[in-house]
Amino acid sequence: MKKTGVGMCLVLHPTGRKGGGDPSQAIIQLKPDGSLFLKVGAVDLGQGALTMLRQVAAEAMDVDIATVYASNRSDDLAPLSAGSAASRVTLVDPHAVMEAAKDLRAKIAAFAAHRLEIDVENVELADGKAFAKDNPHHHMTFADIGMIANLGEGVILVGTGAWQPAPVQGHDPETGYLDQESVISFGCCVAEVAVDTDTGEVEVTKLVQVWEVGKAINPLMVKQQINGGLQIGMGFALRENLFPHYPDPAHGIESLADYSMPTFMDYPPELIHGIEEVPHPMGVKGAKGFSEGSATAPGPAIISAIHDAVGVWIHEVPATPEVVLRALDAKEHGGATDYWSHQDRSAWLA
């Protein structure tokens, strides 16, 4: 028999490396035709680091994004980034790009002041041009500047930037105190499930996941991250375990056929995402990272929905069909409404 239920949860995800020491760098160069070359160190794992940072650079330089070429290839002249980990890139790397843009804008302004024969304070940069504030017609395009600087006057116009949230800190061993801010994103998930009480299979029929991300620099990619986290999150909550008989090391999992990560068939037919923005004081335009968290949020909502459906709290994940059936069995035969399979292992009970 299929029984349906609904569950919700609220989770957090800390963004940036705990304990600080989390630097990133960026370089922006003005090319002879006025186009810009953005070089960053953030690895693109699929999360879209390069796409996002290119958007930040184009806005910070106030140019058409089509004129910005960007690379994150960690080749010889590559700025450093502490890594694409800890949901840190969206919090940290945009600052490095903003700093590099500020540096380059100052250099372009100084060069334009000299060519336009005006005070540098009178130079404004907007829409790919440098002009006199008191006479906007008196201007040079970035293409003019790039050409004259690089090929006419033999000047290289490069902006560099670096940023980190905090220097390295450790916890106080007695209290855990850490002298550092934690930038936190918040996720709320509502899941609807159908539990097959004969097979123990749990089908997620609808899932709503919302993340408060400070500022969504690219809402399409934020959507991808929210919906995408469900893949690992649902696997964690319902299916994947390399050691199904933990702590027994026997596993028998050698291929993806044995390791049943969610497929198209497992994704809920109704999948709804939501983005909420409460700008964080530390982020560029308030942006903070969150993408790891979208794997966290589905699990507790799904497990709570199972409880709503069949009246048992599953205390272990993944809640595989075997676990669900055993939990239903324990409830039927002993009236237990909480289930943890290791209860009979005395060694596990300190």
Binding site: N227, Q231, I232, P262, T263, F264, M265, Y267, L271
Partner: peptide, 17 residues
């Protein structure tokens, strides 16, 4: 779509998109 595509795995989870 779910049936026909279920032999193609995506760990980033782009199934909905």
């Amino acid at each position: 779509i779910a049936q026909e595509m279920s032999g193609n795995l995506c760990r980033c989870g782009c199934y909905e998109e």
